[in-house]
Design a protein around this nucleic acid. Sequence first.
RNA 1: GGCGGUGUAGCUCAGCUGGUUAGAGCAUGCGGCUCAUAUCCGCAGUGUCCGGGGUUCAAGUCCCUGCACCGCCA
Length: 671
Amino acid sequence: MAAPVLVTSALPYANGSIHLGHMLEYIQTDILVRFLKMTGQDVVYMCADDTHGTPIEVNAWRAGVTPEEYIAPFYVEHQRDFADFSVAFDCFYTTNSPENQYHSETIFERLREQGHIVTRPVTQYYCEQDARYLPDRFIRGTCPSCKAAEQYGDVCEVCGTTYSPTDLSDAHCVLCGAEPVMRESVHYFFTMSAYEGFLRDWVGTPGRVQPEVRRFLETWINEGLRDWDVSRDGPYFGFKIPGEEDKYFYVWLDAPIGYIATTQKFCADTGRDFDAYWHNPEATIYHVVGKDITYFHALFWPAMLHGAGYTLPKKVLVHGFLTVNGEKMSKTRGTFITARTYLDHLAPQYLRYYYAAKLNGRVDDLDLNLEEFVHRVDAELVNKIANLVSRVVPFVNRHFEGRLGELDASVKPLIDNIRARVPRVRESYERMEFNRAVQEIVAIAEVGNKYFQDAAPWELVKEDPQAAQAVCTFAVNCCRTVAALIKPVLPKYAADVEAILRVEPLLFDDTARFDLEAHEIGAFERLIERVDAKQVSAMVAASKDNLDAIPASPMAQPVEALEPQIDIDAFSRVDLRVATVLQAETVEGADRLLRLNVDIGNEQRTIFAGIRQSYAPDDLVGKQVIVVANLQPRKMRFGVSEGMLLAAGPDGTDVVVAEFAQPRQPGQRIR
RNA sequence: GGCGGUGUAGCUCAGCUGGUUAGAGCAUGCGGCUCAUAUCCGCAGUGUCCGGGGUUCAAGUCCCUGCACCGCCA
């Protein structure tokens, strides 16, 4: 028996809802898995919720629940979202499992036995009030470079400078506002440098990763592999390091091990042999991951597996991010669309088709252009692919009582034409160039449509019913081939066609057969609805409406500590005015700034606002906003800013400007 | 700042190791058909292949350089 194949998608973090960016990965992996299964390979698809780490621990703590209670609803929600998109895992598990603990400890111990785990003291910020060490994201302070206030511990959102938290002036804990102290702690490190030679070989082996990914990894290896800190101090949600009181495995150590633990669970449930996957050099393991986690999957992970004696992946397939209408998904634009919001408005098959039609197997970002989405689904999926079935099946039922005849010898060249395309589809699926596969499949549907058009059975049936029946017989065979070829992308569509044509579940070998003759087919049923652009707008509108309901992005923002009390006089010294935006324009050379010209009653002011990533200039013109009118003018590189706009948001990419629901006269004071 | 990727028709993209006149689909225009619960079939136009240098008999393709956009920096 051939060695088994195991495919994984990256584990979704149990800290938020699945969105269409996640779905890009799960859908493409699911298509690959379904294709491999259709070709008769012994394939399983493994995934799990990624449950550990600081963000979940802190969010649970803030919500007043245990981490276990916090992650539980996401486990249910994620599985429902995937199932509704026909993403069919053979097992979907969780990293917070005994199996995962066992394998995490085993791998750690084996690496330690080989001397590849070392301890070393680390000096870190520590909040005495919260009694915890503070990761970079939990410290804010003033940027050492541009003096912007309230910047994270690792990078300034205003000027883009990267630094360490110790460089900040007035650093403070985002949880309580207290000033952190420095404290030393012993951490465990995985000595990556010991694996340099191994990784160079692994990365350099053709087929392991895409060429552009290989170049990317090689630069890292060439710069020298740094040891990796794999431990965290408590409080932490994760697995305790054996022999330690309050130290835990870093989430990135146990997350990929979730692939192994899930397989263990799957094997226990199904009676399959675990070692055939993870202790078998012949086993084929594929990981599909987003480009942001390439490093973990193509360097740390193979090194860990190699050191601990587990099966190495054959391939790590890296894909890009999803953009919507050419831009990063944005909550204010309504393009941060969750899987559930999509499902509330649109059929999952549309998205599966659209993604497949655009996936090219490379690391490029994929743009979901909503206008194109409507067009492609209607023009290709509905008008070409499904329409062929709709032309021929009712025709056969009406004129021949659902019975097919024999294929006419004259269609031989057409069959050859289609058969020549099938291997190209197969190869495209194998290479994850689903766009080429879809292109060929549409072309085959066109062959069928054109043949049906030219042969005009609706005319032929009047004089030579048998000839007309032969025409239909070929067209039905085309329908079957198309359905079989598109089945990995559209399992539901294929199943519906199987039912209508009364054929057994289609396998890839059925695609080139053309032997459906003297067969009785069933009644036609509507296969797929046209996309209504209104549904798309409704989905976008709902994504805006959902803003409050969505627990802010994967990494929830901690709430800033309150400022010290002030008296009413202190407040009244802040002169807030109603202002109407007269002009808004981008500032050349500044990624984040917009230059605004506003009317504050008696005068006009020029204000620079760091909201470019959230607002297009045209969105602002005519809006009434709140301006701090007596703020000292500030000289900037691009001019003088004569005031400040009130706005709220966690960072520069997701800001909402405060405005009025009813018109106000410019210049009115706000108290 | 360092590194990587991308830049081809209005839009989305093909163009493999350099080799005729740069392609497809969508969109647009024109024509035909009517079996189709979903309209299909044919014909047609369009390009500083991001800019500038270079290598070559030959460059969208290779090299250098500049610009723009995107990403990564553990």
